[in-house]
Amino acid sequence: MDNTVYVGLSRQMILERELDITSNNLANVDTTGFKFESMISNDDSVTMPTPGIAPAAVHFVADAGVARDFTQGSLVQTNAPLDVAVDGKGFFTINTAAGPRYTRDGRFKLDSGGRIVTQDGDPVDGGGDIVLDPTKGGVTIAPNGIISQQGQNVGKISVVTFDSLAALSKDGNNQYRNDSNLTPTPAANAQVRQGFLESSNVEPVRQITRLIEIERAYDAVANMMSSTQDLSDSAIQRLGAVNPS
């Protein structure tokens, strides 16, 4: 009988974790290049020895992983020459002090040395640093990533992808980390759009609906747990009564 409470508890713990994920999605409804996440839970069956009766599996709920939806976010025009968005499957590579990081957030700027860097000052990879000449003015970035100033090719912004995007871990600051043994390969089906930023792909309606579902499921489990409690209360009252009716 106690198992009912524990199974319910396992479900409630997962629901709280799902609420954490949903709230992170909603907090990032305006975050450049953000990809929303959802929880995958599965059945965690445990067979417990029960004296007197044949052993039966008890199905707890466990979290199997967080699924990340890499659907393209809508592109918003900013007209800034160093704002770039990836249209298609691919990431920019950022050479940070802690190793390469991958991002779809293309809000770049120039540092005092003329290198193209992120807002945090880490250089954007183009087979090495991409250095622009401040005196030459206007920068054009072609859909294939080639950067030119006054018609002259000055570099190429790298766009890479992975065989499995599930291998990437989020690192904060809109960046992903690659902890797996997969190697990044040049993205074949991605184009670079100058003057655009990719907005978050969070769909508020879906997330709000999810909030309601989580709350109702949590309530349902709480009801089940209190019914179980009522059951044991009445069992104790009946069995313990001096003159059972």
């Binding site: 974790r17 199997a64 967080v66 699924a67 807002q119 871990s169 989020k170």
Partner: peptide, 17 residues
């Protein structure tokens, strides 16, 4: 575990540009 479980702590202002 194919994807892992990572839970984010929210959002911050990156830049006002």
């Amino acid at each position: 575990v194919p994807t892992g479980v990572q839970i984010g702590a929210g959002v911050k202002a990156g830049s006002v540009y």
